[in-house]
């Protein structure tokens, strides 16, 4: 419906193609440029994937430190939150200055975007540990170390994965922005080039690609998350409440 309306609207109003091309033209362009986009897509996916991985690991480690040491929680957590107030566009030039034009600054930028949702979700999950479980461990003579390994850490997994799902939706976008600002390859570079040539149809192809890749990445992370938390899989047997044993 939307596409048909767009097509009809553009044709009726006689808009020039460098303002808004009709979807049929975008589709044609997509087919034309598809063979050329392989490298760009590969670059963007590499940056997003690596960044997401680094961000998730850093986020989880930091969450563990925050949960284990109140001092870290008091000093580092507010600082980390502060870094999130700085927009990517401002950070990117700095990162390029420090880390060059290659893969590294992009990965760092994606990681910076991705680690925060993972961190917040994990910290929240660890803080909200069921008192019942903590007491059970203490009642069996468990120390703080046992509490951490047996209860806190595993209890944080679903939360951390929830954060990772959120991070996955940001990752591709962050990579594209980083490339747009300074890159040699990637979808962001493709957008940059297209903009300079007023090739709006190509920009729209990139937009669709970013949305599609983000969707794919999200599905992938979601699938991994389900695999990692099998106890949360809806069981085929009905949940037995107080059935006689």
């Amino acid at each position: 419906m939307l596409l048909v309306g767009w097509e009809v609207g553009v044709r009726l109003s006689d808009l020039p193609a460098f303002v808004l091309p009709p979807p049929s033209q975008v589709a044609r362009t997509a087919v034309e440029v598809a063979p050329l986009l392989g490298d760009d897509v590969a670059t963007t996916l590499t940056e997003a994937g690596l960044g997401l991985l680094v961000g998730a690991v850093v986020g989880l480690l930091l969450a563990v430190l925050i949960a284990a040491f109140p001092l870290v929680s008091d000093t580092v957590y507010p600082l980390v939150t502060l870094t999130q107030t700085v927009p990517t566009v401002v950070l990117a030039p700095l990162l390029i200055l420090w880390a060059g034009f290659g893969l590294l600054p992009k990965v760092v930028l994606v990681a910076l975007t991705a680690f925060f949702p993972v961190l917040v979700a994990s910290v929240t999950a660890m803080a909200a540990v069921d008192a019942e479980h903590a007491e059970m461990v203490a009642g069996l003579g468990g120390t703080r170390r046992h509490q951490f390994w047996l209860v806190q850490l595993p209890a944080s997994v679903p939360g951390a994965l929830g954060g990772l799902r959120v991070a996955a939706t940001y990752a591709i976008g962050a990579a594209v922005v980083a490339e747009y600002l300074a890159g040699q390859s990637g979808l962001g570079v493709f957008v940059q080039r297209s903009r300079k040539g007023y090739e709006v149809d190509q920009i729209l192809v990139a937009v669709a690609l970013v949305a599609g890749l983000t969707g794919l990445l999200f599905l992938l992370v979601d699938g991994l998350a389900r695999l990692a938390t099998p106890w949360q899989r809806p069981s085929s047997t009905p949940r037995p409440g107080r059935t006689p044993a």
């Binding site: 019942e132 069996l140 003579g141 047996l150 595993p154 997994v157 106890w231």
Partner: peptide, 20 residues
């Protein structure tokens, strides 16, 4: 019961032994 939902039955039973 205090059972840990992320552990299967046998690993749940072993929690106390592990602490000990």
């Amino acid at each position: 019961d205090g059972l840990l939902p992320w552990r299967r039955a046998l690993p749940n039973a072993l929690v106390g032994a592990r602490i000990a």
